[in-house]
Structure formats: C-alpha cells, structure tokens
C-alpha cells in the first residue's frame, strides 16, 4: 500500500484516473432488493465490477445459549468471498481477513438495528462476495443494510459502505483494483446517510490530517448518492407490487 511502485501511473496527464473517472467520482452502483426467495430479506449490489449478495434470516433464537444477550439481539454476520470471486481461486472456508471484516461489519450493523427489540435472539446476515474488484467490505455493508430493511428488521437509519484513499499523493474516491494495489492509502467507512454518523471505520496506508478530511468529505458525498439508490431499490420492490407491475 505504501507506494514503492514508482513505475505505475494511476493518474493520467489530464488529471483523470486510468478508468476515466474524476478524483471525486465513484464507480457505477446498481442495487436490487429481495432477490433471494429463500431468505427473509435480501439484496444484490453491483459496485463497479464488485458483486455482493446478502441474505438476512431472523430474528430467531440465539444458539448456542452462551451468545444470547438478555437485553438485545446479536447480529451474526458472515462475510465470505466465493472461491471464484478473485483472479486466483480462494480456498473455501473462513480466514483471518473474513473473520475480522465479519466482526466489525456486525458491530456497525448493531449500531443501526434496534437490537433491544429482540432480546435473546439473533439475526443472521450472510454476505457473499461473488466478484471482487477492491472495496468488497463496503459493498457488503451497503447490501446488508438493504437486506435488513427488506426483512422488516427495525433500524434507525440505513448504512452505506464507501471508501476514499490516496494515489500519487492525490485523494480519490472509491479505489478500484489497481488503485487499491498500488495506491498509498485506503479509508473505508460505514456511514448513516441521514444523520452523517460513522459506524464503520478502517484505514491503512499514509494520510495527512488534511488528506483524511478530504477523504471523509468525499465519502460523505458518495454515501448520499448510494443512499438514494438503496431507497430506490427498496421502494421499487414494493411500489411495483403495489401498482401491479411485478
């Protein structure tokens, strides 16, 4: 992440990025709600070339007993990359990376779900990455929020996963694969779009305070845009039903 790839140019002469995006432009995002018939709630998110699918089950009794909380439910997140989601096949199964992402994702979702409504219960959130092109943890969070809302789980806000970072000493929004591999910093965030609160935060690389502030500014802007798509996906699912177009 820390530079050292002197030969690789990530910004063009005209100041645009290799894929033609402006520094504060995110990749194209598409969202669908309710695409998995077996789940209580579900979502599909395509973000650039990333594809994430999320299924929500519950609330159900928390098993084993030792994970039960008398005053609230637990959110049981599994973030998983499918074996064929990356250029080199991933061996199926849990690894340290997916465990860490699952843990912090669960905690960010617990910050928006009204967990005290369901004592002793658990809500299962299954995030499956089908295609990965940098930023999958953010795409997973965006999908999880839509799937939870689709399942009728009460939440005080949706949550949007977005990332900004630094390439060639320039702050950019939404790193793609090359930028992630050869850039200087990555700052993924989970943002509550209505209130602007931050429920998920990770960072690695090297950022000045000014650069950090610019990253946050870009992330906030992108969160608003993705939030519109989340709302649209949820409303489309039901307004179509309502109008009889489904």
């Amino acid at each position: 992440m820390m530079g050292g790839y002197g030969d690789i140019k990530l910004l063009r002469e005209d100041g645009l990025r290799l894929d033609g995006r402006k520094v504060d432009e995110m990749r194209e995002v598409e969202i669908e709600a309710g695409i998995l018939p077996a789940a209580d709630g579900s979502a599909w998110v395509k973000h650039g070339l990333n594809v994430a699918v999320c299924a929500v089950y519950g609330p159900m009794e928390a098993h084993p007993r030792k994970i039960q909380r008398q005053d609230r439910c637990v959110i049981d997140v599994r973030y998983n990359m499918a074996p064929f989601s990356t250029s080199d096949r991933i061996r199926p199964g849990y690894n340290r990376r997916s465990r860490e992402i699952s843990k912090v994702t669960a905690e960010s979702l617990e910050s928006v779900v009204l967990v005290e409504r369901y004592p002793r219960s658990k809500i299962r959130v299954e995030i499956e990455i089908l295609a990965a092109e940098a930023g999958t943890r953010c795409v997973g969070i965006t999908a999880a929020a839509v799937a939870l809302a689709d399942a009728g789980i009460p939440m005080r806000d949706l949550i949007v996963g977005v990332a900004a970072g630094k390439i060639e000493d320039t702050v950019v929004l939404d790193l793609d694969k090359a930028e992630d591999n050869y850039g200087q910093a990555d700052l993924p965030m989970g943002i509550l779009p209505t209130t602007g609160e931050i429920a998920f935060l990770q960072m690695d690389g090297d950022l000045s305070i000014e650069e950090y502030n610019t990253c946050v500014e870009y992330n906030m802007k992108a969160a608003k845009e993705i939030h519109e798509l989340q709302k649209d996906a949820l409303k489309r699912r039901y307004e179509e039903k309502m109008r009889g177009e489904s």
């Binding site: 077996a38 789940a39 209580d40 089950y57 998983n80 074996p83 199926p92 499956e128």
Partner: peptide, 11 residues
C-alpha cells in the same frame, strides 16, 4: 468440482 451449501442458502 465442489459445492458450498453456506448459511446464505436457507434458514
């Protein structure tokens, strides 16, 4: 050829 029946597939 391998198949995964992960918890996403059903309750």
């Amino acid at each position: 050829c391998g198949a995964e029946l992960r918890p996403v597939a059903g309750r």
